[in-house]
Design a protein around this nucleic acid. Structure first.
Length: 559
RNA sequence: UGCCCCAUGGUGUAAUGGCAACACAUCUGGUUUUGGUCCAGGUAUUCUAGGUUCGAGUCCUAGUGGGGCAACCA
């Protein structure tokens, strides 16, 4: 037996294990993920998806995918497709076919009739304004509607006529009869149905009335016999109403449990704000790699594994939280470090001439594809008299701790030779245009007999063989930790003007020309990059920077 | 000034009345043909005040602080 360090349970797992112990629901566990198809899924949803699917998986249960489509004004089939794709990409499989709240419109209508018959619901023909006014405030009780005590038959008839489209939008609603003085605002005769003469993406024009969230969600859970209905903290105050409907309708008692949603610093997460970024063309669309959406993370080069790992690491509790973006970056670096092939790419090329290397000679050098993974094998890299190195890897006046190329310095070219500075040239305005070095012939990688110790190692590409490539350097969209956390200031004020830098003349090793959409690489010493799925063309890949490498040198320079 | 929820290092999450720990971040050092990875180590934590108890981060009360609730949205 191996020693397994027992991982402690989160509060939902504790509830579930208690239920299991008590034999509740015949020890069955069934969760659901209930998105409204009115926008794209983001990293916050990824956590909710992870929580729902992993908890069911852990206890041998099932997870439904249910589209909460009760408001046809905002919903659309195109979002249904995007949501399904994102969940599958994350690696989760829902039980059976996707479900829809709209599938239950008939049952919900019957539930409404049932409540009317029990004297627990009534049709109100006041305006939205009047109803809002009578609702009271958190500190003052509300007033009862003058229509509150209509007869069962009259209510039944009015509801029927609402359904049949005999009334205008806004003229009538169905309300639950609970308590207009209740301390919980949601219990003050909440709306159950409103008239909307709008075509629904699935039921078409079958219905003129649509149920409100509170009269749809819990009952849908119940119809599907969901045992544990997990949702975010904001629905905590809805729980008494959720339970009220279930109790009065005498239907399957699903249990709602709330947990804290994910918040990330340096970003915004609300659909409304993300939509604004898209509509005002601040970004390139919902899947712009700077967005926190699942589709953007995918395009940026994040792996499903890394997002699941992140969701695991952020934990699960009821405390409001703001997760450091650095944790997400840790998760993707950690995964990519293990799987991404290392390649040579120079973003800002500086020509280096090896003056003692034979002109016209090309030799092939062997380099490992991934030092973390022996099975990744090796490949050949062409080397010649002229190469490109990174501009920032040469300094005319270098400080002591600069372990790169500079007057008087010796460095190793990764997988190639050790070189020594000889000379450099500048243009009229003082830019360095070319560096001359000499190489040590007996220092070739793998067969180094020179005995020379080089302090630094540089990445490079052969000038003759290098290919031009476009590289998109993405950075955080906002330069403020909480862009939407400043009272009286718009989050757009905190946009990072440098969130995208497009480099069109990067030099990459020849093998990269064949890179395909979605391929991920580590550009040696620079970071992780992947082939963009939108701008790339066959033979002309465009690379997105997923994340930089950790950079101790940059950190040192800041100090 | 009503109701509900929450409070543990910088950020998250554990400790289920019995030695406050883990991850990320941060700092030192080592290894290294990536200033990456890896390895070793350090800094740093129970909101306040009472109470219960042999013993409280944990239970109780009050306070303080944070969040949520008054859409014909979900």
């Amino acid at each position: 037996m191996s020693e397994t360090t027992e991982k402690s349970l989160n509060f939902i797992e504790q509830i579930i294990e208690e239920d299991l112990k008590n034999g509740k629901h015949d020890k069955r566990i069934h969760t659901r993920f209930p998105p409204e198809p009115n926008g794209f899924l983001h990293i916050g949803h990824a956590k909710a998806i992870y929580v729902n699917f992993m908890i069911a998986q852990k206890y041998g249960g099932k997870t439904n995918l249910r589209f909460d489509d009760t408001n046809p004004v905002k919903e659309d089939t195109k979002y249904v497709e995007a949501i399904k794709r994102d969940i599958q990409w994350l690696g989760f499989e829902w039980e059976g076919e996707p479900l829809y709240t709209s599938d239950y419109f008939g049952k919900l209508y019957a539930f409404a009739q049932d409540l009317i018959k029990k004297g627990l619901a009534y049709v109100d023909d006041q305006s939205a304004e009047e109803i809002a006014q009578q609702k009271g405030t958190p500190t003052e009780p509300g007033k009862e509607s003058p229509h509150r005590s209509r007869s069962v038959d009259e209510n039944l008839d009015l509801l029927e006529r609402m359904k049949n489209g005999e009334f205008d939008e806004g003229s009538h609603v169905l309300r639950a009869k609970i308590d207009m003085a209740h301390s919980n605002m949601h219990m003050r005769d909440p709306l159950m149905y409103r008239i909307k003469k709008v075509t629904h993406h699935r039921t078409g024009d079958d219905w003129c009335i649509y149920p409100m969230y509170d009269f749809a969600h819990g009952q849908s859970d119940s119809i599907e016999e969901i045992t544990h209905s997990l949702c975010s903290l904001e629905f905590e105050v809805h729980r008494p109403l959720y339970n009220w409907f279930i109790e009065k309708l005498e239907i399957f008692p699903s249990r709602q449990i709330e947990f804290a949603r994910l918040n990330l610093n340096f970003t915004v997460m609300s659909k409304r704000k993300l939509l604004r970024l898209v509509e005002e063309n601040v970004v390139d669309g919902w899947d712009d790699p700077r967005m926190p959406t699942i589709s953007a993370l995918r395009r940026r080069g994040y792996t499903p594994e890394s997002i699941r790992d992140f969701a695991e690491r952020v934990g699960l509790a009821k405390r409001n939280n703001i997760i450091d973006l650095g944790l997400l970056e840790f998760s993707i670096r950690d995964h990519l470090n293990k799987i991404a092939p290392r390649v040579m790419a120079v973003l800002r090329p500086l020509k280096v001439v090896i003056t003692n290397y034979p002109e016209g000679k090309t030799e092939m050098l062997t380099t490992e594809n991934n030092p973390e993974d022996e099975s990744a094998g090796t490949r050949e890299l062409p080397f010649g008299r002229e190469i490109y190195i990174e501009q920032e890897d040469f300094m005319e006046d270098a400080p002591k701790k600069f372990f790169r190329l500079a007057p008087g310095k010796i460095v190793r070219l990764k997988s190639a030779y050790i070189i020594e500075y000889v000379d450099h040239k500048k243009d009229a305005v003082g830019n360095i245009t070319e560096v001359h070095v000499k190489y040590f012939e007996n220092s070739r990688s793998g067969q180094d007999t020179s005995g020379i110790k080089a302090k630094g190692t540089l990445h490079w590409v052969s000038a003759e063989h290098a290919q031009d490539a476009e590289v998109r350097m993405y950075d955080r969209l906002f330069n403020d930790e909480a862009p939407d956390g400043h009272k009286g200031r718009d989050f757009m004020e905190f946009l990072n003007p440098d969130s995208l830098e497009i480099i069109t003349n990067a030099k990459v090793e020849p093998s990269l020309v064949e890179a395909k959409e979605g391929d991920r690489f580590q550009f040696q010493r620079l970071g992780y990059f992947c082939v963009d799925n939108t701008y790339s063309e066959p033979g002309k890949p465009v690379f997105n920077r997923t994340v930089t490498l950790k950079d101790a040198w940059a950190k040192m320079q800041k100090r």
